[in-house]
Design a protein around this nucleic acid. Structure first.
Lengths: 208, 208
DNA sequence: AGGCTAGTGACAGCCACTGACAGTTGACAA
DNA sequence: TTGTCAACTGTCAGTGGCTGTCACTAGCCT
């Protein structure tokens, strides 16, 4: 059961989040000040910083949710699956539940537009990549445990996750710049790219 | 021939760079202010910002040099080489010339210590990853041209580079945290990891 | 009802960074 | 050599992200 105080906090937090994303996507990340966000929700700037570690943090809050959901999805894969297959299936099958998680806080439309803002704002892209790196470290440990190997001596868990993450990012980037800007298209794009990794590594591409 | 004015500029720039790296590695990036760096070289803070775009920029200036050198090395590979082999050889064989480039500006020892600072400072790691992403985009275009494919319709150049970059970063990270902290060890580590990618992708690791 | 505490606003301050303007110094021609 | 111009630099003032402090209010709990 949620107490009144907790409800108020959650409302404030989500209002700040929505207001921030709205401002970022409509007038740009750099051209939006924290004061503006606070003003839009009618709280003090100081309060904003009590809910979010900073401007970057609020911009990437939804991404943080989806990454956590993805890690959970990988953890939930049956243990007999090979590592790369587990990652692939977690991504493709977990998509819908991730969508629901997002939608409970922020309109999906807004989230999608925010993706483009992140990709086109250097400061945000940098923060996003660092977060991805941290998630990859977590995933490497999950895979290592599934397979019963030591993550500190065996590089394969980290290598597998790094390759997977690389493919995801290529797909993300392609998706952001394309016109086919829907939740479904990133799934098909990712599946397609994952299938092509092998052929990409074993050029020669001219004859292939 | 270098004019007096140009020499002065270069000296100021390199002094700022060395002073900055020295301060960053000895007392930490966050705990170093731009005023301190400027003061150490006895110029105004405003002058610092005329030589470097910001605090991040000076921290990653040497990395920027090495990445540019690497891209050049890839461009110089014979065109009949397969893509992944070109990347691999450019990295392994270009190492010595890169070392010389670095040493002409900054002691190698300082550069190595800076690597650890970058890896352990969130803000710097983020900026470093973003720079890597930009370099990967450049490399993808180089590979696409070598192979005569269109980088906008064929995902394989970007995929190949993403995989390669992922492996490099895993090696970098491992190297930073190990005791074997020499220029030579990262080369052997990278070669080793590149060889293991295939096996990492085709678990099951328990039986392998 | 009244004390306790989480949450808040207001204020002051630090630091990265920028624009504007004036002073200085090297380059180059007369 | 000297005068002129352009490049370079310092000073100053200001913006914006972010933090510490402290008094105050509002919800919680007995």
């Amino acid at each position: 059961m949620e107490t009144l105080r907790e409800r108020k906090k959650r409302r404030t937090r989500e209002s700040l989040l929505r207001a921030a994303l709205h401002l970022f996507t409509s007038q740009g990340y750099e051209r939006t000040t924290v004061d503006e966000i606070a003003e839009a929700v009618d709280v003090s700037q100081r309060t904003f910083f009590r809910y979010f570690a900073g401007k970057e943090d609020v911009a990437l809050a939804v991404q943080k949710m989806t990454e956590a959901a993805f890690v959970a999805a990988v953890r939930a894969r049956p243990p007999h699956e090979a590592p790369m297959r587990a990652l692939r299936q977690a991504f493709l099958e977990g998509w819908d539940s991730i969508r629901e998680t997002v939608e409970s806080v922020v309109p999906v439309e807004l989230h999608l537009r925010m993706y483009r803002t992140i990709e086109s704002t250097p400061a945000l892209l940098a923060a996003h990549l660092r977060r991805s790196a941290a998630t990859e470290e977590t995933l490497a440990r999950v895979l290592a445990e599934r397979e019963g190997v030591d993550v500190d001596t065996d590089p394969r868990p980290r290598l597998a996750v790094a390759v997977f993450g690389g493919v995801i990012r290529v797909a993300e980037r392609q998706w952001c710049t394309s016109e086919e800007f829907s939740l479904e298209s990133i799934r098909t794009l990712t599946a397609e790219y994952l299938d092509q990794v092998g052929s990409a590594l074993t050029g020669n591409w001219r004859t292939g």
